[in-house]
Design a protein around this nucleic acid. Structure first.
Length: 341
DNA sequence: AAGGAACGCAACCGCACTCCC
DNA sequence: GGGGAGTGCGGTTGCGTTCCT
């Protein structure tokens, strides 16, 4: 095996402008050829590996610099949900971006963002572990932020992602409800169940937005797929964004809006799939959990709770066969939340 | 204003794969 | 088929910058 750069007395660390210039000039004139031979030929005291890295990650002329766009961000999330940490594969779908850049962006931004939203960045599914209870304030803040964003002008890709995010958050809280309902002592010391659901704007807004425009997401979360238009019209106070040209997403539409790759690539359609969908949902598991759900109530604001669940009741009336949901809602509307003082 | 903490990014390291002899 | 060379890739580290107290 070749000796390491240090053993050979080769330079390591940051590149100087002079070194950059030598590397660029050589490659422009001769191409990189053999990377191992290149440093010597170019007059650089570096190992070939270091030269290759510098060229591919920084000096290449087609590198796109600057912030990642919302569309790029969305694409990364979706591709990551399918490809995992295959950064080079992801990079091939983002012209001008390097695998290293994408990897850094994921580790420093997207990973945290998803975690704050209650989504497991590895599985792209809602997190259900109890550890996230400690992050509940951030989660709720993120939920409120996302709610306000939905009412602002958004591009289609972001709206889709937001859609999936809403579901993830709601699913997460759904599971939390279960935990809180069955084990009130599991609450962190500074967190009362009543406070949780009295958090302004969360339940009131989120519950109405729970039925997503994306049928597949509905299926994922345990709802029956419904016609988006019908679903939305069933929700009393849902006011869709009013920008010209806005349409609720279907999988067909999302394919058009989110995909920037129509070259027949087998992954092309994956641009269209919200991250949560592609991460091998297990509806049966979800449903089993939901069967165990204890009613959740906001004792700090009974009227709001009632409104929320009544709205759900109206929605579910359209699904006449789903007595389970109506029972759940009825229970929730009538029973008091068992609060410990 | 200063010091520490957190963040972001470029670069390195080591493993795995492919190719060639 | 085996082994070495070359290359690609993902994980990790180190350091400069920014933010916070």
């Amino acid at each position: 095996m070749a000796r390491s750069p240090e053993e050979s007395g080769l330079k390591k660390g940051p590149w100087t402008p002079e070194e950059d210039q030598k590397l660029v000039e050589y490659i422009q004139r001769h191409g990189h050829g053999s990377w191992r031979a290149l440093p010597k030929l170019a007059g650089l005291n570096r190992c070939g590996k270091s030269c290759r890295l510098r060229w591919t990650n920084y000096l290449r002329p087609d590198i796109k610099r600057g912030k990642f766009s919302d569309e790029e961000e969305n694409t990364i999330i979706n591709l990551h949900s399918v490809l995992g940490n295959k950064w080079s594969a992801i990079a091939t779908h983002l012209p001008g971006r390097t695998d290293n850049e994408i990897k850094n962006f994921w580790n420093t931004h997207l990973k945290k963002k998803l975690m704050q939203m209650g989504i497991d960045p590895v599985t792209h599914r809602p997190r259900t572990d109890l550890n996230i209870l400690a992050n509940l304030p951030q989660l709720l803040a993120a939920a409120n932020l996302s709610t306000s964003l939905v009412n602002n002008p958004w591009d289609n890709a972001l709206r889709l992602q937001s859609d999936a995010t809403q579901l993830a958050k709601l699913h997460l809280l759904h599971n939390l409800l279960q935990v809180l309902g069955t084990s009130p002592t599991a609450l962190p010391p500074n967190m009362e169940a009543g406070n949780l659901f009295g958090t302004p704007s969360f339940m009131d807004h989120q519950a109405y937005e729970y039925p997503t425009s994306n049928p597949q997401l509905n299926g994922l979360i345990g709802l029956h797929p419904t016609d988006p238009a019908q679903t939305l019209s069933s929700i009393p106070s849902f006011v869709p964004p009013q920008e010209p040209g806005f349409e609720y997403q279907t999988m067909e539409n999302s394919k058009v809006c989110a995909g920037n790759n129509n070259d027949g690539d087998e992954l092309g359609s994956l641009y269209a799939i919200p991250a949560l969908v592609s991460a091998s949902p297990e509806p049966s598991t979800v449903n089993q959990k939901e069967k165990k759900i204890e009613p959740a109530h906001d004792i700090s604001n009974p009227s709001s709770t009632s409104t929320t669940f009544e709205a759900w009741g109206e929605l579910m009336d359209d699904e006449a066969s789903d007595s389970y949901w109506r029972d759940l809602i009825d229970q929730a509307s009538s029973s008091p939340w068992p609060i410990s003082s």
